[in-house]
Design a protein around this nucleic acid. Structure first.
Lengths: 243, 243
DNA sequence: CGTGAGATTGATTTCTATCAAAATATGTGG
DNA sequence: CCACATATTTTGATAGAAATCAATCTCACG
């Protein structure tokens, strides 16, 4: 099963010194198993912890007063999650495991010490947070300005490309680990309509499905339909302070 | 006219040392006037600059292949803009002045030097970037899961509260400096429908309008309608390294 | 004044939600 | 390992929200 530590993930962008790697590894000293469906953090709860996700998948979401849910983000191994608690003492979003997962909680004061001692890591975290913000703007444009079909296409491509970041064995088919209702909650549609779109894309030969796995059969056309741009390709962090 | 430097804005969250303030002030050494409507940054252009917005207002947006526009964010004096160029060498979004404005461009290598020398500032920027990300998730939930009326209400409240951050004189009425078409592009609606919602809210006594200024007459109900939570209130950055 | 951008209103269409039911799949306790 | 309970997917019919199309109106400004 694909697992990924935070240091490795960061090192994919910028070379890290051994000291830095070791310091980052300390954030993951307390791995904790969580079962599929388990709540890792509840909205409005007082929080002082952040997490590195080591194994499995996690989603963040909010529930609106009318009961509807907006899934904000799906996280993969090596992702830094719950970063909102660096700024707010009450969690603005909930975190639930989509999978049997392993998360590594650490106190924000451990983060503070890391930031103090390793300015280069602080800078790197700043950059990655900016990258997250850009990912968010892509979703915003998708929700605000594109059709149901485009949203589904963009969402599938997004998950696909992020799965591939941590799992090289994947070429065109992958486990979504989300119900159609969850997909809908992520992209602002009802499960019924997600199903119609998925069905349609299947008929058109854009995707195929078999026991929970999705295959993207025509990535190029999916990218067109979803107005998708892969942001992972052209990240450029080399200008950072040298190690 | 309300202007605000970056250091002052940051100092509202955390006490800054004089050295730090001075270092931050150096980012603003090259103020540049831009006229209303002027493009500050064009999407896909190679960029190595970031900006602090000193005066006026700026918006970021993308244009989709079908010509529709998604406004991603409206920026106010003291905001740090164009942070995507810390991660991408081609701008993922365009920047246009909504106002006659003053921006202070600085090279990302100036930022690098700042981050190297002042880890505490690096940490602070990291936190503010996280706050931006949370603001983004609020908009995502708004676009994905709420009605046209709710979106308009939430949008007005958001702008209102952010205007107030830099201008204490404002109590309940403010200049939006956006056409109804732009509002629509920000919240995923057509200008026609924005107009209907605004009209309706006016009839219901929730807001009133006079020569471009908007007054929020019933903030409490607007917050309910828009499912709005003011995130500026309970930010907590005190746990950061001491000066 | 005339011109053009923006606001407003009405009529109609389109997309997506909602409601309802059936069909499949998944999981669990015995 | 089966049988039942529950969750998820699928399909159809209908309703509703917002888009689109098309004028008209208003107002700031050269």
């Amino acid at each position: 099963m694909a697992g990924s530590c935070f240091a490795d993930r960061l090192a994919k962008h910028v070379p890290l010194s051994d000291v830095e790697k070791k310091a980052l590894a300390r954030l993951e000293e307390n791995p904790r198993r969580v079962k599929r469906g388990a709540m890792i953090q509840r909205v409005n709860e007082t929080v002082t912890e952040l997490f590195v996700l080591r194994h499995g998948r996690v989603m963040s979401f909010v529930i609106l007063p009318d009961g509807s849910r907006q899934i904000l983000r799906v996280y993969f191994p090596g992702d830094f999650i719950g970063s909102a608690s660096t700024v707010y003492s009450k969690a603005p979003e909930s975190l639930v495991a989509l999978d049997d997962a392993v998360v590594c909680p650490f106190d924000k004061h451990a983060l503070r010490r890391l930031l103090e001692e390793f300015p280069r890591v602080a800078a790197l975290l700043f950059l990655l947070s900016n990258a997250e913000r850009v990912a968010m703007t892509d979703r915003l444009a998708s929700l605000g300005r594109t059709s149901a079909k485009a949203r589904v296409a963009a969402f599938l491509l997004d998950i696909f490309n992020r799965v591939r970041l941590t799992d090289d064995s994947i070429t065109d088919s992958f486990d979504l680990k989300l119900t159609q209702e969850e997909i809908g909650d992520a992209i602002g549609l009802t499960s019924v309509h997600v199903n119609r779109m998925v069905r349609q894309m299947e008929l058109e030969g854009l995707i195929s499905r078999a026991n929970g796995r999705i295959s993207l059969l025509d990535i190029k056309r999916l990218e067109e339909i979803g107005h998708y741009t892969n942001r992972h390709k052209d990240m450029d962090l080399d200008w950072l302070p040298a190690a």
